[in-house]
């Protein structure tokens, strides 16, 4: 359900029609930015913003701070685990993807 992908707004295509160009890894698509535009502010302020694109619509402004906070938590989980492992075994065990089955 609902394939969505992060992209960066690179230019405003038509301010009156609320259309902007979004770049996803070098692939561009014109998208509707009504849902991420702040009423009363110039669309130009959106250039450089990262948005979640779904079927040609920017549906959410990606919150850089929240992303960083999530990653920080993830790194802490990793580090805490490494420490526990280190205490238990005296060394940090490398991660081996399973190769059997």
């Amino acid at each position: 359900m609902c394939l969505g992908i992060p992209g960066c707004i690179v230019s405003i295509v038509d301010a009156d029609a609320m259309l902007a160009s979004v770049d996803v890894s070098g692939v561009r698509r014109t998208v509707d930015v009504v849902c991420v535009a702040e009423p009363g502010r110039s669309l130009d302020e959106l250039v450089g913003a990262w948005v979640l694109v779904h079927v040609g619509f920017a549906m959410s402004l990606i919150d850089e701070e929240e992303a960083a906070a999530t990653l920080k938590v993830l790194h802490e989980i990793g580090e805490a685990q490494s420490e526990i492992e280190a205490m238990r075994t005296g060394s940090v065990e490398p991660f081996h993807p399973s190769t059997t089955h």
Partner: peptide, 9 residues
Amino acid sequence: ADVQGFCEI
């Protein structure tokens, strides 16, 4: 990278 981006979209 761009083929990957194309596929992701």
